[in-house]
Amino acid sequence: MDKETIEKVANLSKLAVEEGELSDFKDELLNILDYFDKLDEANTENVPPTSHVMEIINKMREDEVEKELDNESALKNSSNPQEGYFKGPKVRD
């Protein structure tokens, strides 16, 4: 696994990885990939892909409006509310 790949994965995960940590991450990621190789050994030829461990289907709800949070509660965990909005760094120039 090259440096660029590790940097890319870190970037997609929004993790700041310092130069000195790269080799540690490399080892850990390779371990995980090895584990996937292990999984690949299982014969899944006639097994349909599983995306859910529980065999439930069509769990749906009726189209009804129920209690919503008021503005104050919605913003309660925000460190930076303003005029009823969540405030964050500018995302477009």
Partner: peptide
């Protein structure tokens, strides 16, 4: 179950833990 009529509403008044 939050309402979809956001157009005439004050900001962040049709939310819940799911859509937040």
């Amino acid at each position: 179950n939050c309402g979809t009529n956001y157009r005439d509403s004050e900001p962040n008044t049709h939310t819940c833990p799911v859509c937040l």
